[in-house]
Amino acid sequence: MAMSGRMMGGLLGGALLAVGLAQAQDDTFDEYRSMFGDDNPAIFIVDEGSELWTQARGPENVSLEQCDLGQGPGVVENVYGQLPRYFEDTDSVMDLEGRLIHCMVELQGFKREEIIEGIYSGAGDNGTEMEALVAYVADASQGSKVAVPQSHPEEKAAYKAGEALFYHRAGPYDFSCATCHRQSDKRIRLQSLPNLTEAEGARATYTTWPAYRISQGVVRTMGWRMRNCARQQRLPELQPGSEAVVDLLMYMGVNAEGGSMDAPGLKR
């Protein structure tokens, strides 16, 4: 046998002793990405988000300035890296998008179904309000440390549920999140895949979403990102702010502990 023992298949099968050829080749697109410098068109969408935050809207005609994202009503700075977290008023663990939906319903009087209907822009459309608001909040957390709480029992339970969801295989293709995101230096086509089960990959991911997608000219949120992964798992449509999103984000966020926020990022 040219190569013996556990080789690529072992990696594929995820056997713990993955000998194999972990070619830690650098990313095919490092050169391409470095040529963008820090001139990220997301700043326009951050501006839109900051205007939306202070604008009186909805049936109640109030702004979002009383919305509590975890650090007190209206506090936007350095909140992104500490979400998801447990919220007293809803007695549940929530992520940023779920919390923004909550405020748009409770404070501004929008109907939940309406918000969710047009929450993410389709290909070729302009950006949506949720994308602008999330870009604004993420931008206001630039440089802050990721410190997703694990103090409340529900927060610990969410992490455990997130880990179980991460390895859960379902759908006609038998994919789980782990199929793509539990190994390092792997790629699907030329798309490099972060290993979300450990700090380096989780930090690189958690701190750079939401991100401006150059191919679509809009900011994409983590809720959109997970919905799209579930779609490619051939599963039904994953709902923003839902428990599966919250638990998976808790799992990724805690694994990303200590990373420093650098969003909105710039991605394919």
Binding site: T28, F29, E31, Y32, R33, M35, I214, S215, G217, R268
Partner: peptide
């Protein structure tokens, strides 16, 4: 120019 572009749009 980059040798390989991840996306032709930009």
């Amino acid at each position: 120019t980059p040798d390989i572009a991840e996306n032709g749009a930009v």
